[in-house]
């Protein structure tokens, strides 16, 4: 028996020292290729560097997000795409060791300006998370929470209306209108995620950040969320981080490819998935690593 254990641990050891399958032969390059800039940017990020303690997670990223576009961020695990997304509404402020430098402009306003309050910023830039995270309250309370804390509705009727409109926009109204006051956590995973989307659009943000919103959902629920993103595009600017290249191809207008904290390529989605400019992008989308 001991011999067996010995063998097993040896094997694990081999796994650990195995070289990673990342292509070593391709030059990363200093400049992002493609079209990282837009003519009428909703958000413009310049020279963004992010450190976690001593470790640098993002290197010198420049990127524009255009008005009413859906921009997808793809890349292998640990490439910094989620970190970058969380910088856009300063969610990284809650992580103590995290240090962000560079310029983040939202409609001519520097969101990292010392005088910038994060409360109005997050009201303008909403966020949907990887795991559906409704509050352990009723469906109604979940959606009404944002408008309540920002004082968007002065009367009950107005609040009711905001809740209904938000749930309708999130495509959830028909499913939950009869049980608005039952627990939000009692919904299915896909419904919970749409509830979270409804919750974030209830404060009428201008930009919605989505951090792998479908990774915890089944394909049918995923399809519904993707349809929803296509609809939301008319009113909101959306930045979505995804692990699924198919999803990026389906929902986004532009795609940004991150690699080891660097922004390698930004191009129209069609171009990225058919004829990528950078060799690394090609290697990733053809599945040579990731």
């Amino acid at each position: 028996m001991e011999a067996v254990i010995q063998k097993k641990s040896e094997k694990q050891g081999i796994d650990e020292v195995m070289p990673s399958n990342e292509p070593q032969d391709i030059q990363v390059g200093d400049k992002t290729v493609g079209k990282p800039f837009a003519d009428n940017p909703k958000m413009a990020m310049r020279n963004v560097n992010v450190h976690y303690g001593d470790k640098q997670a993002i290197f010198d990223v420049n990127l524009d997000i255009a008005k009413n576009e859906v921009i997808a961020m793809i890349g292998p695990s640990g490439c910094g795409k989620s970190t970058f997304l969380r910088c856009l509404n300063r969610m990284n402020d809650t992580i103590e060791s995290c240090r962000v430098t560079g310029q983040f402009i939202l409609d001519d306003q520097d969101i990292y300006h010392p005088k910038q309050d994060i409360v109005p910023l997050r009201a303008r830039v909403g966020m949907v998370f990887q795991k559906p995270n409704p509050f352990p309250k009723s469906i109604y309370e979940n959606v009404a929470y944002g408008p309540k804390i920002h004082g968007l509705a002065s009367r009950r009727v107005e609040l009711d209306e905001i809740v209904e409109v938000s749930l309708r926009k999130a495509g959830l109204w028909e499913e939950v209108k009869d049980r608005l006051h039952s627990a939000g956590t009692g919904l299915s995973g896909g419904q919970q995620q749409r509830l979270c989307i409804a919750r974030s659009i209830a404060v009428s943000p201008e930009v919605i950040l989505m951090d792998e919103p479908c990774s915890a959902l089944d394909p049918i629920a995923t399809a519904k969320i993707e349809e929803l993103i296509a609809e939301l595009k008319q009113n909101f600017t959306i930045a979505i981080v995804t692990h699924s290249m198919q999803q990026a191809a389906r929902v986004s207008d532009r795609t940004a490819y991150f690699h080891l904290g660097k922004l390698i390529e930004v191009n129209d989605t069609k171009r990225v998935f058919t004829n990528p400019e950078h060799d690394l992008t090609e290697a990733y989308i053809t599945g040579r690593f990731g």
Partner: peptide
């Protein structure tokens, strides 16, 4: 208290005190 609940409230623009009083303490 799961961090996802804090994230959710922060993401909506709740202030630190609102996150603590409305969500963390009740849970």
């Amino acid at each position: 208290v799961p961090p996802s609940i804090r994230d959710a409230a922060y993401g909506l623009g709740a202030s630190k005190m609102q996150v603590v009083v409305h969500h963390v303490i009740p849970l």
